[in-house]
Design a protein around this nucleic acid. Structure first.
Length: 514
RNA sequence: GCGUUCGUGGUAUAGUGGUAGAAUAUUAGCCUUCCAAGCUAAUGACCCGGGUUCAAAUCCCGGCGGACGCACCA
């Protein structure tokens, strides 16, 4: 008997089917066979992603008065020499000639010899030590091929002929460090302040996987907060210090503790589990932000990086993780304490002074705390967490800030002057600046279903009483309730709804259909 | 990158060594006073390259892409 096992359909399969069909996102370069690690956003995805970005800026930029920045994707080699990326963004991989498994050459040498940080010795030393120590495949004992270098930054040339070597940036943070002095001046030479950038980066991943979760080109939202280590207080700390978080510390990670510590941010900072108040602040804001995307708190946690997992610049990093239906706990953000590593390196490499003068006359290089978000996976996270299959239809219950379109306008029927009236309503809303879907095709029920599937929160129906008395109805995506109001009151009603000054049932008179 | 597996209209699929069938969606018309109703018609597909064969979407090889496992994810 042959047992045929079909891979079960995952939530990711469902979401990506809708995404392709309705135009949220799909694989890039499809007509030429595709290329993994790249994704293309359609109309709905572009708008959704933009709204996620704006919501992030509401949480992390606007209220604090932090400064935005937009810098080049292509950077000259010197930047990454100074940042340590050229040294750290590569690895030597040795493949077994018998079983085909590949291993990190430097780790094999470390295991055999007990040496540490073999990677830093360079490629030639690694190749030599592989031979000298007669290192075999740890899996099958077979002969290992000579280690190959993988540089996971994209390399290019600046200038037409024999130009300078350039790299596509793998993070945006370096731009904040390069432009730190200008930011400092623009902030009227006061600390603390932050430089924020939301834009594209590229990493030449060896094998990108999992749809939107690991891309070769993606949008990153990063914030570099500069502060005086002797004056480490965060002025907004009180807003988050009592927030309860689920925490896995470095020690718990090392001991593989299963259950998280559940405690307030203040407790975690006071106990030294989180090194700085600023990290605590950003972790608290982070939890509010991810919750605002529609992810419940019990599906969020913070997990410390172990030293060997940590980036070369980091003294402490907490990942903010969210639980996905298909892939389990997934990093959505990293909050790293970068100390003065980057500014010091750039100061040394460029010869530019990055120091700040204290009132008492002492000088210091500011320390940095960096929360960093992958916007593409947040966009997917928002889709997965707001998706529902109900009454044989797909619904995205996007929070109103995220919805790609804000309101749909439907004529109940396309005769008796109803359609003309509906066009008037549509034009009014467009004039007032709303993102409007207008649809006349099929039954009204089908049109409700169509906009449910793209997460439009409100739908306006124009019927005979609209034609005769200017009274229309708004239907709520989530409850299917309806309220009625006059056309002239519609723009203000929608505006207060989208500012969260009013909830749906306060927009008009509740309609009861018998 | 290695291993397993898969690749048919926009989407999700059926199927056979003799170029494909239904669904859904879309478009047009009819109908229609609130949750994917109905009727009529139309549009639309075998991932790419090579091989075997009288004949390949089907078999074989390679590539590309996806999923899963290993490795990797600074």
């Amino acid at each position: 008997m042959v047992l045929i096992t079909m891979a079960p359909k995952t939530k990711y399969d469902t979401i990506s089917e809708i995404a392709k069909r309705r135009g949220f996102f799909w694989p890039s370069f499809e007509i030429y066979g595709g290329m993994s690690g790249f994704t293309t956003y359609g109309d709905l995805g572009t708008k959704l992603k933009r709204n996620v970005e704006n919501l992030w800026k509401e949480h992390f930029v606007r209220r604090q008065g932090f400064l935005e920045l937009e810098a080049p994707v292509i950077n000259p080699e010197r930047v990454f020499e100074a940042s340590g990326h050229l040294e750290n963004f590569k690895e030597y991989s040795a493949e077994c000639s018998q079983c085909g498994h590949s291993f990190r050459a430097d780790h094999l040498i470390e295991d055999k010899t007990g040496l540490e940080n073999v990677e830093a010795l360079g490629g030639e030393a690694i190749k030599r030590m592989m031979v000298e120590n007669k290192i075999k495949c740890p899996r099958c004992g077979g002969q290992l091929n000579e280690p190959e270098l993988f540089l996971t930054m994209f390399k290019t040339e600046i200038g037409a002929t024999g130009g300078e070597v350039g790299y596509l940036r793998p993070e945006t943070a370096q731009a904040m460090f390069l432009n730190y002095k200008r930011g400092y001046i623009h902030n009227r030479e006061k600390l603390p302040f932050a430089l924020v950038q939301s834009s594209k980066v590229a990493r030449n991943e060896i094998s990108p996987r999992r749809g939107m979760l690991r891309l070769r080109e993606f949008t990153i939202m990063e914030l570099e907060l500069f502060f005086d280590p002797e004056d480490p207080a965060c002025p907004w700390y009180d807003e988050v210090k009592d927030s309860v978080i689920r925490l896995y510390t470095e020690e718990m990670e090392a001991q593989e503790v299963k259950e998280p510590k559940v405690l307030t941010i203040k407790e975690a900072v006071d106990q030294g589990l989180i090194l700085t108040e600023w990290q605590g602040y950003f972790m608290g804001v982070s939890q509010k932000f991810i919750t605002a995307l529609g992810v419940p708190e019990e599906k969020q946690r913070f997990r410390a990086h172990l030293p060997d997992e940590r980036a070369h610049y980091s003294a402490q990093t907490y990942d903010h993780e969210a639980e996905l239906d298909t892939w389990g706990w997934t990093e959505v953000s990293g909050c790293a304490y970068r100390t003065n590593f980057d500014l010091s390196n750039h100061m040394q490499a460029s010869g530019q002074n990055m120091e700040v003068l204290r009132e008492d006359g002492t000088r210091f290089v500011p320390h940095v705390v960096e929360p960093s978000y992958g916007l593409d996976r947040l966009t997917y996270l928002a889709m997965e967490n707001n998706y529902e299959r109900n009454k044989k239809r797909n619904i995205f219950h996007f929070p109103r800030e995220l919805a790609p379109y804000q309101v749909a306008v439907f004529p109940l029927v396309t005769k008796d002057g109803i359609e003309e009236k509906a066009e008037e309503v549509r034009d009014l809303l467009l004039k007032k600046g709303f993102w409007v879907v207008y649809d006349t095709g099929g039954s009204i029920g089908r049109r409700y279903a169509r906009v449910d599937e793209i997460g439009v929160p409100l739908a306006v129906a124009v019927d005979y009483s609209t034609r005769d008395d200017d009274v229309l109805t708004i239907r709520d995506r989530d409850s299917w309730e309806q309220v009625s109001l006059k056309i002239k009151d519609l723009p203000d009603a929608l505006e207060s709804y989208y500012k969260r000054e009013k909830d749906f049932l306060n927009l008009g008179e509740k309609v009861v259909r018998t």
